[in-house]
Each structure stands twice: as structure tokens, then as C-alpha cells.
């Protein structure tokens, strides 16, 4: 199953982009609400860090930075990766609720193109939010990113987005088959805060939880990103994390696409395509 970018496919993607833009901008306050939500989240961690006197703990020594800078980067990244993780399932759920999903599937849109089209607005919006994070981080909070190794950062970032998108597509497959009750989303939301290393380095956890975190791609992404930005680690120095993320990406993407196609065919068979 490959994505062929011919003219009709591009037309479909642009039509989705336009449609989502028009719908989102018809909710006047949603845009401001999104920005405020991100800002309040960041400020909360800024003041938590201030409460503890901006101290560097031994757990953060590895990353050569303070708590606020650590959590700022992981939050900015996870906000973007979240578009990959959540957008496929949430968009399909929205289309199911609206009653438009069946209408979409009565058109000749290929499944990979449908997935891309459904998520493209969320990725663009998340990119905009990422720019807001970067501007705030550099100019308001004066976070020092002078050590950044751009090549290793981009490598880790790209592999992570592919991995999380694949997990998001898996999650969407469950939504198509079972509508509500999506075990992938549940596992991801339960694990991301505790084991992913977003709010604190995984080294803080007891050994058995640290072992569990090794099964979560997010923990490799966060660690590698923090090291590439604050320590300037090269691709060679991050080869373990990058290799594991590459393995996740290579295996999860085809599996997720196959599962999604299976889910669609299953609902074509059992007649539950139009249900919500």
C-alpha cells in the first residue's frame, strides 16, 4: 500500500485542508484557547521550577540543563507528536459523530490518502504551535540551545513522528472497528506521563518502571531530543536511541496501514461503517 501523489490525490488533500481550516476558523475562540492552553501549561512548570530554586538535580546532569528547560522541550515535542498520535483517531471519531464518515467512504479516496488528508490540518496547526513554543523558549524564557546538534535533532524528530503517526493509525483502526473503547489510546495516555519521560527523566523511576519504559518509543524520543539539544550529541552518540526508533518506525508503519485497511474491510463486511 503506497501513497501515490497524483493530481487527484493532491486535490483531495487540499480539499480536506480547506474544509478543516473553514470549520476550525468558524469557532472563533478555539484558536486563542489553544495558544492560552499551551502557555498556561508552560508557565505552570516555570513556577514549579522557580519553587525549587531552579536547582539542577543529579537526574538532569545527564542532559546538562535545568528542570524547566528539560520539560519545556519535551512538552513542545510531545505537543507536536501528539498530532500524530491522536489526530487520526480523533478525526475519524469526529467524522463518525457528524455522520460524514460514510459519505467520505462512498467517494473514491484511497486509504493512505484518506489518512494523510484527515491528519494534515492537525499537523499544520501543531507546526504553528511548535513555532510559538520556539519563539517563547528563545525570546521569553531565554532557553540556551546553543549546543544543539541539528542533524541528530532532525533525525530523532523525523523518526519519532513516523513512529507516533503509525501508533495513531493503529489507534484509528480500533476506532473504526469498535467506535468507543480504544485500547491503544488508553495505553498511550496512561503511559506517556509516567513512563515517557515528558515531565521528568526516566532515571527518577524505580528499576522495574524504568524497564517498562524501555518498551515505549516516547522514552527514546525524549531522551535523544534532550541530548541532541542540550548536550549536542551526534547521531553516533545517539545510535542506540536512533536505532530503536528506526526499528519502531520500520515495523509499525506497514503494520498500522495494514491494520487500518483490515478495519475498513471488516466494517464493509459487518455493516458497521456508518455506525458511531
Amino acid at each position: 500500500m503506497t501513497i501515490t501523489m497524483n493530481k487527484p490525490a493532491l486535490k483531495q488533500i487540499f480539499a480536506f485542508l480547506r474544509k478543516d481550516f473553514l470549520i476550525e476558523t468558524s469557532y472563533k475562540l478555539a484558536f486563542i484557547e489553544g495558544i492560552l492552553h499551551a502557555l498556561i501549561g508552560i508557565l505552570t512548570f516555570f513556577f514549579i521550577d522557580k519553587l525549587f530554586g531552579h536547582k539542577m538535580t543529579p537526574h538532569l546532569d545527564t542532559f546538562n540543563t535545568g528542570y524547566f528547560a528539560y520539560v519545556f522541550l519535551s512538552m513542545a515535542f510531545f505537543n507536536y507528536a501528539g498530532a500524530g498520535l491522536g489526530s487520526f483517531a480523533s478525526k475519524i471519531r469526529n467524522e463518525q459523530y457528524q455522520g460524514t464518515f460514510l459519505a467520505l467512504l462512498s467517494t473514491p479516496i484511497k486509504i493512505p490518502n484518506l489518512l494523510l488528508s484527515l491528519s494534515i490540518w492537525n499537523f499544520l496547526y501543531a507546526s504553528f504551535e511548535l513555532i510559538v513554543y520556539v519563539v517563547l523558549g528563545l525570546f521569553l524564557f531565554k532557553i540556551d540551545v546553543s549546543n544543539t546538534n541539528v542533524l541528530s535533532f532532525l533525525t530523532v524528530f523525523s523518526l519519532s513522528i513516523i513512529t507516533f503517526s503509525a501508533m495513531g493509525i493503529l489507534s484509528a483502526s480500533f476506532v473504526i472497528m469498535f467506535k468507543r473503547g480504544n485500547p491503544v489510546a488508553w495505553i498511550l495516555s496512561a503511559m506517556e506521563g509516567l513512563l515517557g519521560g515528558i515531565f521528568f527523566p526516566v532515571s527518577v523511576l524505580p528499576p522495574f518502571l524504568q524497564t517498562l519504559s524501555k518498551f515505549i518509543p516516547l522514552s527514546y524520543s525524549i531522551k535523544a531530543l534532550e541530548l541532541s539539544v542540550y548536550r549536542g550529541h551526534s547521531i553516533m552518540e545517539l545510535k542506540n536511541e536512533i536505532s530503536i526508533l528506526a526499528i519502531f518506525a520500520i515495523f509499525l508503519l506497514p503494520i498500522s496501514l495494514w491494520t487500518f485497511k483490515y478495519a475498513i474491510n471488516k466494517t464493509l463486511k459487518n455493516g458497521s461503517l456508518g455506525q458511531y
Binding site: 473553514l22 470549520i23 457528524q98 455522520g99 460514510l102 459519505a103 462512498s106
Partner: peptide
């Protein structure tokens, strides 16, 4: 196919 559902359109468009 004419889908017999008014909600098969985007109402905010």
C-alpha cells in the same frame, strides 16, 4: 449513492 442522512454533510460549511 444518495445517503438518507442529513448529517452526512458538514453543517458548519
Amino acid at each position: 449513492i444518495l445517503l438518507n442522512q442529513e448529517r452526512s454533510f458538514y453543517w458548519r460549511l
